[in-house]
Design a protein around this nucleic acid. Structure first.
Length: 828
RNA sequence: GGACGAUUAGCUCAGUUGGUUAGAGCAUCUGUCUUACAAACAGAGGGUCGCUGGUUCGAGUCCAGCAUCGUCCACCA
């Protein structure tokens, strides 16, 4: 027998098994392997710094499912990729190298992005390996590599042909900091303080009309004034004109129901563009376009003396001038919510510009219907999706005036402006470097200008099913593999990644991208607050891994039901580590009491010739297991297998974990082992059969338990399996073993019920001793049990075990309907 | 303003279709070296299940309303 330490040391075992799994290709995907395919659309994490603890928990949860399904005999497609194109990478590059993309040559900047990624990515991925993800890391995609660019461009062309994508000059949401158009989904809310100012617009008769606004800097963009049609105060003014202060031109007073009579003076100026309502009015009333803001968020020539000022500067200068000219009657500080760009937290503007859009507003109902066809775990997350789709009011703007992204496979004819698409066989293309083939289809022109914009990162990441599948499959087979089995992801990107993927899959293939989704919650700090750098409450998974190991981290992640937020608690992770120590000690106990020869003998009968099949149940039943206590724990085990399987089938890993843990600690460690201890210690010939029964039982229980635990704690279970259970006839890794099946012959409700009685008696003996401050070893001379005939019969069968566990001299039975015990005396 | 979730022991959470005395871990207290484990074990204390009504023989569980917290969305003049 190998010497084994008292404590389980993850820092020693985990790296060792990581290497082993990689070397043996345990998680490699083989499209031709046996078994129904279970495919997972793994979220490609964004390469920016290190893994977040939120990642660690949600990826662990995904991995529980993957490992379970693998043990169920499915052929698991569990790919891995990274998301790295777009603004966050650009911002990180700018920060890391202290450069500015807009001030550099485009090519130099892109080279810098690629350089940083190639340096960062390998280390970044290590974190995912370290937490024990069972992904096939041998083939990976990145959303900016040639593979992804080709697929993304191909799908753009597909959309173009299907007339789902269009280019149009229109008001778009614009980030002045990133200097690009962005999508509705890229917005966040921010509460901010500002001044609500009352401005005087002079009427023809010399009187003043009060307009309340928070955006006086947009005055030169004012194109109309609106009042409510039923507002009696202004009824006579409708159709008249008013003079824009400082800029002294006339705008018409119009009516619209969207005006809130109670807000400010009840009269509002419409600027192109201050907000979304302005856009609606602009379109509805065909108002003129007056652009007073440029791409950088500075005022244009239209603003005359305020040109080139920033919004903030212009605002205060205009306020000053209005004051001087007595055109400002009041100003009060208010707090309002503004939209900011999620990536850089800058307040957004609305600018008119030419952009590519994916048209989906006409498909809202269909998209809601599709959402209803997906199996949601947990189900209530679906309403978030529906809510989002119902609230959509802009088509999806997919062009970005940035640099590090997938380019559009598009040129424009210099003569007539017609779009010239790249040919599919040439993909991926860089229109800035490559030239289109042939002449303009419309006018026959042969000179073209490239599209400089790049695609929104979601336009590529919404194709992850295709990106992942095409690493292993051709185009046709990929189509067949969709819908995939599962999309796991966090709830904060339901309105982006999840929604966009549904959109793309529907437009390209006319079907769902996956059959079910599993939505994970957030990780918050111990006080339930979201972790963020500004709060300084971010916990790095690296620190947890070093201190407690991946298994402990995973156990913690398994502790919250799907979709629920998880607050970080070091105590809970410690509890996970304690569980591992306990598991280790139970294993040591079992192994100390099984000689190698016995192990071999039992192992032979346990595994059939094929080396992988189910245990020989009849052998267990008829030949080896004979004691009641053994049959009891085996009956409990069957119940556990049954309930854990049901939970996993329902994607309810946390219930499975709870049940397994409870069985392990309470039933097995605290009670069963205590009960059979003496039977194991007694090596006398007359106890041979009793001893073997216990040995066989312990072996069976432990190996079954290990397999149940393998999805949660892949490292510790592998260590134990490899050290004690693996033979040349068994699978080379526990992660290639079958998931245990409940054995109906061993399952026995009556024995489970009897177990409760047994535990009650043992509990009362322990309580008796504890209350008197006695050692558990103290001998009890006589134990009287008051019970009915049936129970007496069962107890008599385990009399030996019971005497041993309580160190009881003699057991007497008294007839009684209600179970109780009497401990008459004991020796000190 | 809308949608969704949460509210159960000091703390973190379980609690299946309504059914005996509402469970676990951590923390607290008492005891125990017991040939797996003192980083352990045994035992104990601790809860008006957010509030108010309703349905029911029976409600932590179902229904209605309210409150507090969280998330997403809308509002942004």
């Amino acid at each position: 027998m190998k010497e084994i330490s008292k404590h389980y040391d993850p820092s020693e075992t985990e790296p060792r098994w990581l290497k082993f799994w990689e070397k043996e290709g345990i998680y490699k995907f083989d499209p031709r392997a046996k078994g129904e395919i279970f495919s997972i659309d793994t979220p490609p994490p964004y390469v920016s710094g290190r893994m977040h603890v939120g990642h660690a928990s949600s990826f662990s949860q995904e991995d529980f499912v993957a490992r379970y399904q693998k043990m169920r005999g499915k052929n698991i497609f569990h790919p891995f990729g990274t998301d790295d194109n777009g603004l966050p990478t650009e911002r990180l590059v700018e920060k890391t190298y202290n450069v500015k993309a807009t001030k550099m040559k485009r090519g130099d900047f892109i080279r810098l992005c690629n350089k940083m990624l190639s340096e960062m990515t390998p280390e970044f991925i290590e974190d995912w390996k370290d937490i024990g993800m069972s992904c096939d890391f041998s083939k990976m995609y990145s959303t900016i590599d040639d593979h992804s660019r080709e697929i993304s461009q191909w799908h753009f062309i597909d959309l173009y042909k299907k007339q789902r994508v269009y280019r149009q000059e229109a008001p778009v949401i614009w980030c002045p900091h990133c200097q690009t158009a962005i999508a509705q989904a890229d917005l966040e809310d921010k509460e901010s303080k500002t001044f609500f100012s009352n401005l005087v617009f002079k009427l023809k008769n010399g009187k003043g009309l009060i307009i309340s606004t928070t955006r006086p800097e947009l005055l030169s963009s004012c194109v109309a004034i609106f009042v409510h049609p039923r507002d009696l105060r202004y009824k006579r003014l409708v159709g008249q004109k008013a003079k824009v202060p400082l800029f002294n031109y006339w705008v018409e007073i119009k009516t619209d129901k969207k005006v809130d009579m109670k807000k400010g003076s009840g009269a509002v100026m419409c600027c192109t563009f201050g907000d979304k309502t302005d856009v609606e009015w602009f379109k509805e009333y065909k108002l003129p376009l007056k652009v007073s803001l440029d791409a950088e968020g500075k005022l244009t020539k239209l603003a005359k003396k305020y040109a080139n000022l920033s919004i903030k500067e212009a605002r205060s200068r205009i306020i000053e001038d209005l004051k001087t000219k007595k055109l400002l009657t009041a100003q009060k500080e208010i707090s309002h919510t503004v939209n900011i760009h999620e990536r850089c937290k800058t307040e957004i503007e609305i600018l008119n510009s030419k952009q590519w859009f994916i048209r989906y507003l006409d498909k809202k109902n269909e998209l809601i219907e599709l959402g209803r066809k997906i199996e949601w775990h947990p189900p209530f997350m679906r309403s978030r999706y529906e809510n989002w789709v119902k609230g959509l009011s802009w088509d999806w703007a997919i062009s970005r005036q940035r640099f590090f992204g997938v380019s559009f496979p598009v040129w424009y004819c210099q003569k007539c402006g017609e779009v010239k698409l790249a040919e599919e066989k040439d993909l991926p293309v860089d229109p800035l470097a490559d030239k289109p083939k042939g002449k303009c289809g419309k006018c026959g022109g042969s000179k073209f200008s490239p599209e400089k914009d790049v695609m929104d990162t979601w336009a590529t990441s919404s194709l992850t099913p295709q990106l992942a599948l095409q690493l292993f499959y051709g185009e046709k087979e990929t189509k067949k593999m969709i819908p995939m089995s599962l999309r796991p992801q966090a709830h904060d990107i339901i309105s982006t990644w999840l929604f966009y993927t549904v959109v793309r899959s529907n437009f390209h293939l006319g079907k769902l991208p996956w059959n079910r989704v599993m939505i994970s919650g957030y990780v918050t700090d111990p006080n339930g607050r979201k972790m963020s750098k500004s709060l300084g409450n971010v916990i790095s998974p690296k620190v947890i891994l070093e201190k407690y190991g991946a298994d402990a981290l995973r156990l913690w992640a398994a502790g919250r039901s799907v979709g629920q937020d998880l607050n970080y608690s070091e105590e809970e992770i410690q509890a996970g580590k304690k569980f591992l120590t306990k598991l280790w000690n139970v294993t040591r106990f079992v192994m100390m009491n099984l000689s190698l020869a016995t192990l071999e003998k039992i192992s032979k009968s346990y595994f059939s010739q094929s080396g992988k099949k189910e245990p020989n149940k009849d052998a267990i039943l008829n030949k080896v297991v004979r004691d009641e206590a053994d049959k009891w724990i085996l009956a409990e085990l069957q119940e556990l297998v049954d309930s854990a399987t049901k939970s996993f089938e329902n994607y309810d890993y946390s219930s499975a974990k709870l049940a397994i843990e409870k069985f392990f600690w309470i039933k097995l460690a605290d009670n069963y082992i205590e009960i059979v201890k003496n039977r194991l210690y007694d090596e006398s010939p007359k106890n041979k059969k009793g001893r073997e029964s216990a040995q066989f039982t312990l072996y069976t229980v432990l190996l079954t338990l290990l397999r149940l635990l393998a999805p949660f704690i892949p490292f510790a279970t592998e260590e134990i399996y490899q050290t004690f259970f693996k033979t040349n006839k068994t699978p080379k890794s526990i992660h290639l073993c079958d998931w245990p099946e409940a054995n109906k012959k061993l399952a026995d409700k009556k024995r489970v019920e009897f177990g409760k009685i047994l535990l009650k008696i043992v509990g009362q003996i322990r309580k008796h001793k504890a209350e008197r401050g006695l050692s558990m070893k103290t001998e009890i001379k006589k134990l009287e049990i008051f019970c009915d005939g049936n129970i007496r019969k069962s107890i008599e069968e385990i009399e030996g075990d019971l005497k041993a566990v309580g160190n009881i001299g003699e057991i007497k039975f008294k007839k009684s309907g209600k179970l109780r015990i009497k401990i008459s005396d004991f020796k000190a």
